[in-house]
Design a protein around this nucleic acid. Sequence first.
DNA 1: TAGTGGTCTAGACCACCCT
DNA 2: GGGTGGTCTAGACCACTAT
Lengths: 243, 243
Amino acid sequence: MSAPTASTPKWQSVLADLQTRTLATLEPHDPLPSERSLMVTYGVSRMTVREALRSLAGKGLVYRIQGSGTFVAEPSRVSKSLALTSFSEDIRARGMVPGAHELARVTVPAPPAVAKDLGLSVGHMVMRLERVRTADDESMCLERVWVPLAVLGDAVSDRQPIESLYEVMQRAGALPVRADQTIRADIFDDEESRLLTVARRSPCLRVARIAHDARGRAVECGHSAYRADRYDFNLTITRPEAT
Amino acid sequence: MSAPTASTPKWQSVLADLQTRTLATLEPHDPLPSERSLMVTYGVSRMTVREALRSLAGKGLVYRIQGSGTFVAEPSRVSKSLALTSFSEDIRARGMVPGAHELARVTVPAPPAVAKDLGLSVGHMVMRLERVRTADDESMCLERVWVPLAVLGDAVSDRQPIESLYEVMQRAGALPVRADQTIRADIFDDEESRLLTVARRSPCLRVARIAHDARGRAVECGHSAYRADRYDFNLTITRPEAT
DNA sequence: TAGTGGTCTAGACCACCCT
DNA sequence: GGGTGGTCTAGACCACTAT
């Protein structure tokens, strides 16, 4: 009842209140109030309470045991970058300032490998973007991505630097929400070493990625090479839950 | 009503039928029947249908657009190893035979770093296990893990090789369901090169991990070094959904 | 305007955990 | 046995998408 009558669903109000008020006063493994008592507290039905608790459990903030209760989870030391984030978001989350030095930006017919990754017919036009990404003005990675011109529409102005590709794609209604990634270790080749001004043959993380929007269209593919001494991947992985 | 009166929930029966029958006859981006028509088809309430569809969406097999419908997602080329899996499961999933060559297995007081990772007081006893993991008898990685003796109980017999640590932990009621991982690139040191019989200073992927069971207890920590030429990480990442 | 998924109610029974 | 979360029903209204 106390929730603003605005457009936010009730379960999100309950979620926000639980997260900011209830969880703040509890220790790990402390039990939360039962679903039935939360119904009374918030004046909502049980399904609404369960939707909020389901979201909390999905975030890993609580865990639930049938027949026993809902409990505060131990905090994860890792910033969950299991989430799909852009390089810019990633760097900002680490308290640094992201930057980009554009090496190339051309419109070309999709090469066979790119056409295959993006599910395009050969010859379909794509934008190829090659950039050195920086954090606090220090080079962090070399990034080469391809985006179908069709998904960009007119969201990209011709001779204006692209600071965050994902912001551009969001304006074009093609924000990536899912990406398949392959991560492997390697060493920089000579050209890469020169572009990033690192020692020749120093270790790097290579990430190949195909990103999809909400409708499942492949909207971006490419690969990045990260300096091993400046970049690592932190992620929280889970076992597939019930079914 | 047609569902077996057994213990499987109705929504799982609906899920299984949708996955094996309906999805098999549809192409990517084809619409599934609406929730209301599925209610009639299966003779269940809307919530039951939605639970099944929610599970399908969580698996990435369908996507849902409010006001529009539920649609078949494009298949992901990547085997989703976003899931927490053991090395053995991982290798078997790739069609190879996993193996282990035990280098050390001792019971020691937890070193400070390990005690910190596992949330134990210093001096708490832990089992240290060091193994070369193999796939089809070829060395793949060097693994060093620590497990609190308290969580193992008597699930581990003293002088019997441990084929799959996760099977042992499952018997002990401490199956990891969530793990925080840090992945970075590096090169093998001389001892590691010798143990894995690979060239000196060749590239590797280093993975540090802290694994937790359903109750959030830290039940395992350790780090592994994978041969870069034989191992990569494939994962599907997603944007955090609503809230 | 008609149809879709998103939210929500007020009940109910079950499986499971604890004492 | 009493309490918990898991499942399920039969409704309802809302927000959004398409035509």
